[in-house]
Each structure stands twice: as structure tokens, then as C-alpha cells.
Nucleic acid binder design. Structure first.
Lengths: 202, 202
DNA sequence: CCTACCGATCGGTAGG
DNA sequence: CCTACCGATCGGTAGG
């Protein structure tokens, strides 16, 4: 048959698989929120009917869980890698913040979903995700406290500074645009500088 | 009749009015989001049936519109009042940020709704709200630019600094707790200090 | 303030 | 991958 080899013509047929469903969910959850997105919209974006989605997923909740869990785990892994082998506390904080800021410019949709719909997760996933987030916040706070103790930083309340720095980075996902005047790297560089200013780098 | 004067016994009967409906909507929208909240839940919180809500409102969308519009207008009015009569650009920025930060600690629910569900607003309200938000951001950016031009501040990209400062304040609504270790005034004081550090106050 | 009810839509299943 | 369909729930209305 002439058009029998559809694998060689991927544009001729919708190639739907689990990754495609997740990508569509990522786009729609980020735009309209988890509760604001219907599975019929995800199916529509893929050019299939709603029941066909169930060939590639088990439930709507699983789509959210995968996105949020993977993202949270990646944030922690990136943090660990960013400070690995770096001794100076100033440089450790700079790299940790730059990495976190960069992620929020380059993975905007994931960040928007985590911060908007995290409470829509069911247990025990929610508890695990919140635990990993707290671990990251405590690590950043620990760097600030270490810098204060060693006289490199000067800030009254390390906990408040860590919240301010992290949330400032998170918010990048809300306004950053690829077509905008600043590159992701520029924003990350500038924000890591803000972080060092907030903690009163001497 | 013995229990005829119900106005003297407000605890004996649910006193539902438009303000009570709005208060219930405020609590539930903030907790579960606009799309995640059903009118039946708002009615349930008030001890009435869903159709009875319509004696006090026209539509669910109107509840969101009132909350978001009023909040956005108050933010702008508070900004104007905070810098009124103050000439020094350093003091103007300090007061503007302190006011904005304080609001996000004292009006957490309103802030959470504005930042989570603003896109669920219908036009033309959405456009008006976004316009007022932009006006506030431009005002803060203008203060930073003025400070840089007059040599009081030293920051490379005033637009990025204004985003960072404002979103850092917005995020207070996400973690602040009345029972927490910091008072709203303390947080506002500390964050206005962070803002001046970010812009490189000399 | 209520009961009764509307059409629409939700996430998900049966069965092919 | 589809059609047909499930019970539940949605925001909202009729009518008292």
C-alpha cells in the first residue's frame, strides 16, 4: 500500500503517546490551571477523543502528579549539582540562586503549575512534594546562616531573606518571555546578584 | 412571640447578606481557587442552599470580579497615598515597598486570589485590572530609574529589579501566618530593606 | 429562604 | 483509536 509506512510520515497522522499527552497537559494546566482544564481540551489539542486519552494515562490526577513530582525532584537535583565541589559560601549561594532562577525562566510552565496547583495533589504525593520543597528552602537558608556566621553576609533574618530570594526567582516564571528583551541567562545572572545584595554581601 | 426579635440574637439564625457571601467566597477561592470552588461549597459554609446565594449575588463570576477589582484599586490607592508628599526618591521607594509588602501580609487571601485566578476574569474587567497593575509596576520602576539617574541607586536593569521587588512582596501572601514568628510590620520593614539593597542604595 | 429542576459538562468506563 | 454511555456535579432558573 502506498501510504502504509506511516512512521516515515509523522506529520500525516497524529502520533499520540504518553509524552504527547503530558506535553498537552503541561501547556493547558499552565494556561488555565488544573481545575480549569478539562480532559476534553487535552484530547482536543491532540486531535483525539477524550476516552482515547486513557490509552496513555490512568487518571487526570496522574498527569498533575507526574509534572509536579518530576519538577520538584529536578529542582533538588539541580541544587545539589550546582553547589557540588564549591566551598566558598558566597559562590555556593550565587550558583544555587542562578540555577533556580534559570530554571524558572526555562521551565515556566512547570513552575506555574507547581505554584498554582500544588494543593490539588492528593496524599501521599502532596506531603512528599512539600517535604522536598522544604529541604531546598532549608538548604538555601543554611547557606545564608553560614554566611552570616562567618561574617560574609549581613542580614537580620536569614529565614525571611531565603523566602524573599526563592520567591523572587519563582516569579520569573510569571513574566518571563522568550521573545522578551532579556535572555534567561541574563535574568539568572541579575537575580543571583540581587540575592547576594539581599543577604548583605560585604 | 418569644423568639421573634432575631436581630438581637444573631447567633440563633444565619445572617446572610452580600458581605457574608463575599467573605465566604474570599476564604474558599483563596484556599481552593476559583475553578476549584463550587457555589454549593460557598452556600454550605453559610448554612444555606445554593439557590439562596442568588438573593445576594448575580453570578459566580461577579464574586471574583469584585474581589479582584477592589483589591487592585486599593493597591494603587495605597501606593499613591504612601508616596504622597514625600520628595526623596529613596524614601518614596521605601514607603511604596513597605506598603505593598504590608498589604500582602495583612490581606493574604485577596492577594492569593488575584495572583492565582486573575486569568479567570472575563473582559473587559480583565483588561482594566491588568492595566492598573501595570500602572503600579511602572510607578515602582520609575522610582528606581529616577534613583539611578540621580546617583542614589546602582542597578543595571531597573525593570528586572522592579519585577523582583514586587513579586518578592506578593509572595509574602503565600507563606505569611498570623501565628508565625514575624509580625506583618516586621516583614514589611525587612522587605523594604531588601528592596533598597536590590536597587543598590548607596 | 426553600424544593424542584434545567441543560451542560465533568472524569471515567464498556465494549469494540 | 472510536461511539455510546455512566453517575455526579456544575452554575443557574422557576416558582413559591
Amino acid at each position: 500500500m502506498v501510504q502504509g509506512v506511516s512512521a516515515q510520515r509523522p506529520e500525516a497522522r497524529a502520533t499520540v503517546n504518553a509524552a504527547a499527552v503530558r506535553e498537552a497537559a503541561l501547556a493547558l494546566f499552565a494556561e488555565r490551571g488544573y481545575h480549569g482544564t478539562a480532559l476534553s481540551q487535552i484530547a482536543g489539542a491532540l486531535g483525539i477523543r477524550t476516552p482515547s486519552l486513557y490509552n496513555h494515562m490512568r487518571a487526570k490526577q496522574d498527569l498533575l502528579r507526574d509534572i509536579v513530582s518530576d519538577t520538584t525532584e529536578q529542582v533538588w537535583a539541580e541544587y545539589v549539582a550546582s553547589v557540588d565541589g564549591v566551598d566558598d559560601v558566597v559562590e555556593r549561594l550565587r550558583r544555587a540562586v542562578k540555577t533556580y532562577a534559570l530554571r524558572h525562566a526555562t521551565h515556566r510552565r512547570e513552575a506555574l503549575i507547581v505554584n498554582r496547583d500544588i494543593d490539588s495533589l492528593e496524599e501521599p504525593v502532596l506531603a512528599a512534594v512539600l517535604d522536598l520543597r522544604r529541604r531546598h528552602e532549608r538548604a538555601i537558608r543554611g547557606l545564608i546562616e553560614e554566611g552570616v556566621e562567618t561574617g560574609r553576609f549581613a542580614v537580620a533574618v536569614p529565614a525571611l531573606a531565603s523566602f524573599g530570594i526563592l520567591e523572587m526567582c519563582v516569579s520569573i516564571a510569571r513574566w518571563f518571555r522568550d521573545e522578551g528583551p532579556f535572555s534567561a541567562a541574563e535574568v539568572a545572572e541579575e537575580y543571583s546578584d540581587y540575592a547576594l545584595r539581599i543577604v548583605g554581601l560585604k
